[in-house]
Design a protein around this nucleic acid. Structure first.
Lengths: 145, 145
DNA sequence: TTTGATGTTATCTTTAAAGTAACAACTAGT
DNA sequence: ACTAGTTGTTACTTTAAAGATAACATCAAA
């Protein structure tokens, strides 16, 4: 398949809503910033809404972030939009008659879980607020030079 | 795309070579344990050979692991076979005219790199020897009950 | 020399994600 | 109420990366 950009796009949407809160926040406008399409933006916003991170409404009302960005972690966003939340994947069809094939799945499942936990622990330390601050800082440096 | 099972399959191959070192180690035999096909097994073995983890030869010679399994980490295997070694992906087409679109790529690249490092640090602590030991232990428990 | 397995490459198939489109549902303004 | 405009949702199409399959040259060993 293609690689998923959902997490990146979801961060993009949230940052956009925060930074451009007084401008046009239609799915069309956001899609132009993401260089994607309004349908995808709305689907991602639905996932963020389901996770309790974003409030949206039909009609012209602007979406709003429902929690303090300092209390929203990259992990929260990751879990909200990545339906497949495993970073490493096990081939679950191995020959059970073989010492290796019959046991490797559980062995790897355990090993991969520790890797997943390490990654998620790191994701939990990164907040939406810090990402937005970083975006703003880079913009400042860009416009100064 | 499909999810990659290369890492799992590569561990499977190495464990198989170690555990069945006195039996048939043809790509055909290994493929039956992986429930895959000989072509894929040979391609993965080629990657492991290129990384200096496995010695193979044409003809009937059995492949051999070239380093002490206690000195081969999951990270070594990961780097040997995963051509795409990024766990999280950035959508690299965003609108540069926008504060978010113009800066989020670098922001996320940095954030994702810390997540990648956390995952790889954990992978480095897991050795092929420990994985094989775990497989053997599970097999013992299976045959006892 | 023969046999048989590997090394390598090319092509087809599969699958999950993104792109596209359509339309019902709802909100706000008139 | 009615209209305009946007969201929410779903179905379908396209794309891309991985795996499956196959073919064959290459080499090692008997």
């Amino acid at each position: 398949m293609r690689y998923s950009h959902k997490l990146s796009d979801a961060v993009h949407i949230l940052a956009y809503v925060e930074i451009y809160h007084d401008d046009d926040l239609s799915s069309m406008a956001i899609a132009q910033s993401v260089e994607s399409n309004p349908g995808l933006v709305r689907r991602l916003m639905a996932a963020l809404r389901a996770a309790g991170l974003l409030a949206t409404q039909r009609g012209t009302a602007a979406p709003e972030i429902t929690r303090d960005p300092a209390d929203i972690s990259l992990l929260d966003i990751y879990r909200a939009v990545e339906t497949n939340d495993h970073l490493l994947h096990i081939d679950d069809k191995t020959n059970p008659q073989c010492i290796v094939g019959g046991n490797i799945q559980e062995t790897l499942r355990e090993a991969y879980a520790t890797v997943q936990t390490a990654a998620e622990t790191q994701m939990a330390t990164i907040t939406l607020a810090s990402l937005i601050a970083d975006i703003r800082q880079r913009e400042q440096q860009r416009t100064q030079s």
